[in-house]
Design a protein around this nucleic acid. Structure first.
Lengths: 185, 185
DNA sequence: CTACACATGTAAACGGTTACATGATTAT
DNA sequence: ATAATCATGTAACCGTTTACATGTGTAG
């Protein structure tokens, strides 16, 4: 039951609609969780029903009406409890790794192609994350921001996401290269 | 539906029982997937029913009787199809990241404690993975093994796991340090 | 005789994905 | 008109987790 807390944590940064959250969770900035839009709308309904967030309608001239949500005091208390409770260990679950694991026994060509696609996608995400990090830092250099800047939480998760994508990219490139060389023998 | 393929890929390395797979998937070596024992037993039943693996009973004097499984030709064909199909993008889903995301708004102390626990766990896992990598390599240096050694698939996934754990460790240590320093202000 | 590691499962509940569905507004 | 983007949902299905359950053999 952690999407619940991921949404709460995301809403600490400001008021967002389901649609805005969906973009952040689904596309680029999912540096600390990932979810489909449908799931977010569902979760937002539940959170509102439980009084952990409150929504307000915003009528727009130029766009359809949307509902913005903010964390309530009850929501903040729930998050505090969650933060103090034990975490599950993190683990990788990745289709592509399963394919690489099997690559000695199946045709390597499609696996190589997918590694190269992934590498490209990872590069794109690194760039997005770099932009976000720069926006947080403003004029400060990273060291200074880490010591005194604010907010620190989102900056740290963003850093983690950035490194994950960078690592993923490097590994994909290396693996593709090696498998390609071996295929030529 | 990827545990299915993860199990198939794992069984390419030899015959394993549910219990043996459980240890590999659950504890240290889950470098390409993760699953609970119960789920593995269930999945093995399904795979056998579908003819993708075949099991044989092994009566042991010193231990309870177990069932060892191996991939059938149909299973290998299934894996080949899977490897050629498109992969879903990989993403992080981690409780602890959610907590760090919220750390500006909740008590940092328990989050710091959890970061330190995670760092220690990651170090332990790095050591396990290093051992496995050395066992694969034997006398060869890494570069040579990557170019000519066999199997290459499991070695590459193991390398990915190792780097993931190392990164995770480094990030946890750094984040804990920073949050600790900030708490003292 | 007790604790531990080996060995294998079932059932209920939960969380996440996929498919389906709708409608407003703006730009082309 | 039509496509694209903004905006929000429901329902069925599937995969995962949690809790429950059982039994063998070894070592202390």
């Amino acid at each position: 039951m952690s999407l619940r807390h991921a949404v709460l944590a995301a809403l600490l940064s400001g008021e967002y609609s389901g649609y805005e959250l969906a973009k952040a969770f689904d596309v680029g900035v999912a540096n600390f969780w990932y979810a489909r839009p449908q799931q977010l709308y569902l979760e937002l309904s539940k959170l509102e029903k439980d009084g952990l967030i409150s929504g307000r309608e915003v009528v727009q001239r130029t766009r359809p009406t949307k509902r913005l949500f903010m964390v309530t005091d009850a929501g903040l208390a729930e998050l505090a409890d969650f933060a103090a409770a034990a975490s599950k260990p993190s683990f990788i679950r990745d289709d592509l790794l399963v394919k690489v694991q099997a690559v000695d026994h199946v045709d390597a060509a499609p696996v190589i192609a997918q590694l190269e696609q992934r590498a490209a996608a990872a590069t794109a995400k690194v760039e997005i994350l770099d932009k976000i990090l720069r926006r947080y830092r403003g004029d400060l250099d990273e060291e200074t921001y880490l010591r005194h800047g604010s907010p620190i939480g989102p900056y740290l998760t963003c850093l983690r996401g950035r490194r994950f994508e960078q690592e993923h990219h490097d590994w994909c490139v290396r693996a593709a290269e090696l498998l390609r060389d071996r295929s030529l023998v």
